[in-house]
Write a protein that binds this DNA or RNA. Structure first.
Lengths: 101, 101
DNA sequence: TAAACAGTTGCACTAACGGGCAACTCTCTA
DNA sequence: TAGAGAGTTGCCCGTTAGTGCAACTGTTTA
């Protein structure tokens, strides 16, 4: 079998290795506990929980790893339908939406 | 003062008057309890809870009532940023997003 | 070293769609 | 009747989400 050799593929690894390293948006979101949620962090975390790489997720969804990366870093705006597609096809999950008044 | 004379401006009125009348998406969503949520129904309900008309909501958000109508009826796709704008500026609420894996 | 994997970033393209305008329907009141 | 308010719908256009490619930076293993 092909063993995974490197890089971050679980949430724990990410938190251990990257948390607090760079002054990026991802870390700030973790610190803020997603109070000001960003979609990117949401997908990022879910993907790691599933143990998928960006390329693997991209393939399931029918897109490219570069696009996944852009979404996770909130570089590109996402349509809700696209978000649903990623979550359902790629992560086997469901998008939950609600309004807190 | 200018009194509101007509049409539906509360959730109760909507349910009383429209529920089950037409075979539209809105009714089906109400019946399904939003299992297959649609953004439209979400905004629609929140708007009625706030007692706003489409035009009033539109003005707060800086858009038109026609656009609000299209979103509520799921005719148009919504961007997440737009959804946030509507909920925050227009309804004074917060959009809650999560992924159920 | 190097090679392979994971992720980021830049650039350029285009079909799709967000969003506006205006005209329409429907309902209620006078 | 008519007029006004609430909501729907058709048409249109400019923007941009989504894509594709390629080059880049780490990081890990051999």
């Amino acid at each position: 079998m092909k063993t995974k050799r490197n890089n971050i593929t679980t949430l724990e690894q990410f938190k251990d290795k990257n948390y607090g390293k760079r002054g990026n948006a991802k870390r700030e979101q973790l610190e803020a506990g997603y109070e000001n949620f960003k979609i990117g962090a949401l997908i990022h975390e879910a993907r790691l929980e599933k143990g998928l790489t960006q390329a693997e997720l991209a393939e399931k969804v029918g897109t490219t790893k570069s696009y996944i990366s852009k979404i996770e870093n909130d570089i590109k705006e996402v349509r809700i339908s696209t978000l649903q597609r990623i979550i359902e096809l790629g992560l086997g999950g469901q998008l939950q939406l609600s309004i807190k008044l």
